[in-house]
Simulated assay, not measured.
Amino acid sequence: MKTYRYQSVEKNIMALIASGALGLGDKLPSLRGFSNRLGVSVSTVNQAYLELERKGVIESRPRSG
């Protein structure tokens, strides 16, 4: 089974949640900041965020920064 880059980003975010580095109600890193940190495109991070939102792991809050 092929693994896509956005899935690696998803796993990275899940690891941050599991380790307690990201807690309930914390803001996620910005798309641009996280893409630079991981060396992937902004659209890859965006896809990971969309997938995690679809799965109910994260929640989007419009106009929250």
Rank of each mutant, 00 (worst) to 15 (best):
R37P: 01
K2R: 11
G33C: 11
N46E: 00
E10D: 10
L50V: 12
I17F: 07
K11H: 12
S64I: 12
V45C: 15
Y6S: 00
L52S: 00
V9T: 08
G25M: 11
G23H: 03
N36W: 10
G20P: 13
I58S: 05
R54L: 09
Y49R: 14
P29M: 05
R61F: 09
N46G: 00
G56T: 12
N36H: 06
T44G: 05
M1V: 13
I17G: 06
A15N: 14
L28V: 09
K27I: 07
L28D: 11
S19A: 04
G25S: 04
G33K: 01
L28K: 11
E59P: 02
E53T: 12
Y49F: 15
R61E: 11
A21W: 08
S43C: 07
E51N: 09
A21S: 14
E51H: 02
A18W: 01
I13Q: 00
M14D: 06
K2G: 01
L22G: 01
R54G: 07
S8I: 12
G56K: 11
R54H: 08
S35H: 05
G56F: 09
S35D: 01
L38F: 08
E59A: 03
L50W: 04
R61A: 04
S8L: 09
V42K: 15
R63C: 08
I17L: 05
G20I: 11
Y6V: 03
A18T: 03
N12Q: 04
E51A: 11
N12E: 07
A21G: 05
L16M: 14
M1W: 02
Y49K: 10
R32M: 15
S8W: 00
L38C: 03
K11C: 09
E53F: 07
I13P: 05
G33M: 13
P62T: 03
Q7M: 03
S8D: 08
R61C: 04
V40H: 14
V45Q: 08
I58Y: 05
K27D: 11
T44V: 14
N36T: 08
G20H: 13
Y49W: 06
S35L: 15
D26T: 08
Y49S: 05
E53V: 10
L38A: 00
R63K: 09
R63F: 11
G20E: 07
Y49G: 08
L38E: 02
G20K: 14
E10Y: 01
A21M: 02
F34V: 14
I17K: 01
